[in-house]
């Protein structure tokens, strides 16, 4: 464990807490893409298949359980909660996320570390996580205005993978034979996808103005 990875995990945790705060405090999920939340639930469920077979550390197990439980809780809340579900932007959240699932699965069949069930689903979860934010970014683009908590949620969600890139660079220089090409390349793509959001987020922060995304 190094400081970059710990910072990344904490930033990821903060993004989930901000999302839960937004939904429970405002009793609204406007501006939140249900499709992105479903993709994230799928990412965690397929990545942590080794939850009960490979014990890494207490921290690792607890964080995996938190990520799985919180992502499922958000999806269930957005689908079932009678007040929250009314604020879901159903007609704006129309990204065809099934294509992202299909593309990630096909790529995982082609590019993986070992052609086994667990490794293919691990690679699938890595590729899918890189693309999972797309429905959310498209929804924000369409809705134009970004409320503070939603903006902070997406910002922390993007920042966590940037910390992981620093973690992979650090591990590359401090550990022999460290090579995580699948996670590194995918993590880079994931962070780049946030680039324009980060730019407009920074501009709005600098001007202390409400964040606007160009339609």
């Amino acid at each position: 464990m190094n400081i970059f990875r710990f910072a990344g995990d904490m930033t990821h945790l903060i993004s989930i807490l901000v999302l839960l705060l937004k939904i429970y405090a405002t009793k609204s999920c406007s501006g939140i893409s249900l499709k992105t939340q479903e993709l994230y639930a799928l990412v965690f469920l397929t990545r942590y298949l080794d939850l009960f077979t490979d014990f890494i550390s207490v921290y690792n197990t607890i964080m995996k359980l938190v990520f799985i439980a919180s992502s499922l809780a958000v999806v269930c809340c957005m689908r079932m909660h009678r007040v929250v579900r009314r604020s879901y932007d159903k007609d704006l959240d129309t990204f065809r996320h099934y294509f992202l699932i299909l593309a990630s699965f096909v790529l995982a069949l082609l590019v993986n570390e070992k052609f086994t069930f667990q490794e293919i689903f691990w690679a699938f979860s890595i590729y899918l996580e890189a693309l999972a934010i797309l429905p959310q970014l498209v929804l924000l683009q369409r809705s134009g205005n970004v409320d503070n908590l939603t903006g902070q949620y997406v910002f922390f969600l993007g920042a966590y993978r940037a910390f992981y890139i620093l973690n992979w660079i650090y591990r590359y220089f401090t550990e022999q034979h460290f090579s995580r090409w699948i996670a590194c390349v995918s993590g880079l793509v994931q962070t780049v996808l946030y680039a324009d959001f980060f730019y407009y987020y920074f501009i709005s922060w600098k001007n202390n103005a409400k964040m606007q995304l160009p339609a």
Partner: peptide, 10 residues
């Protein structure tokens, strides 16, 4: 085929 890594990251 890529080298198999230990999945110690989240």
């Amino acid at each position: 085929c890529l080298q198999e890594t230990q999945k110690d990251e989240l």
